[in-house]
Structures are given as structure tokens and as C-alpha cells.
């Protein structure tokens, strides 16, 4: 039955995510082309206002696209499972697990797709943008990055963190919406407050785990040379990212358990 749920979920939801991905790519192409046609800075002190604006608009468009997709997927989950449509979904001969997984697999896939799209489009744009700011035509973001972290580890870190954070963010939304349904009134508001609560708790836990590394980083910071400081920063940054990925994974598991429990044991459709 999971396959059938996935098939119908895809048929009913593919249009907006595809549109968002196409729009983000169109904005990327326009920005990349525009940045390539602006003359580079004449001196170190000169900053191209047009380049700054183009980069800013690209960043805003990408954030809006990502946010719009997230909101759409959250509303889809809420509407399909906890409003009138829930009367059909919860009377299908399928388990709550299949219902959650069908939504999760597709939503996470869309979020992963747009995250990779953003990642792979933002680097070329940044590359062109920094070239415009620099008077040295040989400077490259990729070369600079490669000095501090191996490309294979960087790609692994990005792939793992994108996958885990996409799944985790969808499950946090699912758990918040499901918790909100337990309230007698103002269920949407309750869901939003639950989401804020989850986010706050996650931030606190993340901070607690990261504090020892931050203290250690500050104490042992080697400022004798810029290269040593940069190397140390990347080491610290890498550790922090892996801790973030680990906490997201734990949060995802807890949110999944909570969502499934509520759907199995506490379902209360108005």
C-alpha cells in the first residue's frame, strides 16, 4: 500500500515543487549571466553596487523558494491528514506508518532536491561575485576551500547534512502539527507554538553540545599566522557541522516516534 500512497501523493503534489525548482534555476541563470557581464572592480576599495544587488536578490529568491516549498509541504500534511481530507486518508486500509512515510519520503525528496539545487547554484554565483570584488583574476573559491578541507569530505558533509536536515525538518513539522491536533481549539496556532518550542529545545541542546568545542576553539586559537587561524577555524566548523547533523538525526527519530504515536493512539478528527 505504501507504493500506492506514494503514487497518489506524487500525482497530487508534484506541480508546485517542480515550479519552485524551475524558478530557482531560472533566477540562478539570470544572476550568473548578469554577474558575468559586469566589469570587475578597478581597485580593492571599489565595490560594485550592481553585483551586490544581484547577489542579494539571488539569495532572497533562493530563501523564498525554499521557504515556500517548506510551507506548502507542511500545509499539505496538515490538510490531507487532519482536516476534512483526513476522513478519507484515515479510513483507507493502511497503517499510520504508511501514511507518514508516504508524506515523508516525497516531502524530504523535494526538500533534498531543492537544497542540492541551491547548493550547486550558489557556488558558481558566489565564485563570480567574489571574482568581481577581487582585483586578482586568479582567485577561486574552490581553490581557497580546498586548502582547508578535502573536497571528498566536503561533499560527504554536504550530502549527509542536506539529507538528514531535510528529513529532520519535515519530521519536526509533522510532530508539531500532530501535537497541535491534541488541543481542543486553535489547533493551527498550537501547531505553530509547538514548532517554535521544538526549535528552541533543539537550539538549546545543540548549544549545550557545542559549548565545550567553542570554548576549546577560543582557548587554543593560534593567531600567529592567518593560515593557522583559518585552518583551525575550518577544523572547528567541521566538528560543529557533524554535531549538528547528529543532533538533527536524533531529533528526526524522536519526532517520527511522536507523530506515529499520536496518529495511532490519540487521533481525534473534529
Amino acid at each position: 500500500m505504501l507504493g500506492k500512497l506514494l503514487k497518489h501523493e506524487f500525482k497530487e503534489t508534484w506541480k508546485l515543487p517542480v515550479l519552485v525548482c524551475v524558478l530557482v534555476f531560472a533566477v540562478f541563470l539570470a544572476t550568473y549571466w548578469y554577474l558575468g557581464n559586469i566589469p570587475p572592480a578597478a581597485s580593492e576599495d571599489e565595490i560594485s553596487m550592481a553585483a551586490m544587488m544581484a547577489f542579494l536578490l539571488f539569495t532572497i529568491a533562493v530563501i523564498c523558494g525554499n521557504f515556500a516549498l517548506l510551507i506548502y509541504l507542511a500545509v499539505r500534511f496538515y490538510k490531507n491528514l487532519y482536516t476534512d481530507e483526513g476522513y478519507l486518508m484515515h479510513t483507507l486500509p493502511v497503517t499510520p506508518r504508511s501514511l507518514i512515510l508516504s508524506k515523508l519520503i516525497l516531502s524530504s525528496s523535494w526538500m533534498i532536491l531543492i537544497s542540492f539545487e541551491i547548493f550547486f547554484t550558489i557556488f558558481p554565483v558566489m565564485e563570480r561575485f567574489f571574482q568581481l570584488l577581487s582585483t586578482d583574476p586568479q582567485i577561486s573559491l574552490y581553490t581557497a576551500l580546498g586548502e582547508y578541507i578535502s573536497i571528498s569530505e566536503f561533499v560527504l558533509l554536504v550530502v549527509v547534512s542536506v539529507i538528514i536536515s531535510s528529513i529532520s525538518s519535515m519530521l519536526t513539522i509533522y510532530a508539531s502539527i500532530s501535537l497541535g491536533q491534541l488541543f481542543g481549539k486553535h489547533k493551527v496556532l498550537a501547531s505553530v507554538l509547538c514548532y517554535i518550542g521544538f526549535s528552541a529545545i533543539t537550539q538549546i541542546i545543540t548549544s549545550i553540545f557545542m559549548t565545550p568545542y567553542m570554548v576549546s576553539y577560543v582557548i587554543t586559537l593560534d593567531t600567529t599566522t592567518a593560515a593557522a587561524a583559518s585552518f583551525q577555524f575550518w577544523e572547528f566548523f567541521r566538528t560543529i557541522l557533524w554535531i549538528g547533523v547528529g543532533i538533527s538525526a536524533i531529533l528526526a527519530v524522536l519526532c517520527y516516534i511522536l507523530t506515529e504515536y499520536i496518529m495511532k493512539k490519540c487521533l481525534n478528527l473534529d
Binding site: 490531507n80 476534512d84 481530507e85 483526513g86 476522513y87 478519507l88 479510513t91 486500509p93 493502511v94 497503517t95
Partner: peptide
């Protein structure tokens, strides 16, 4: 549960189908 959902055909008092279908 799943078994009873196979045996019951339920018409709710509200519209439970997606309107764009």
C-alpha cells in the same frame, strides 16, 4: 484498524475528497 477499514464503507457528513481531483 486496517482489517475493519476493509469491511466498512464510510460516508462522512463533510466533503472528504480533494476538490482539484
Amino acid at each position: 484498524g486496517i482489517e475493519t477499514k476493509k469491511k466498512i464503507s464510510y460516508l462522512p457528513e463533510r466533503s472528504y475528497c480533494q476538490s482539484n481531483m
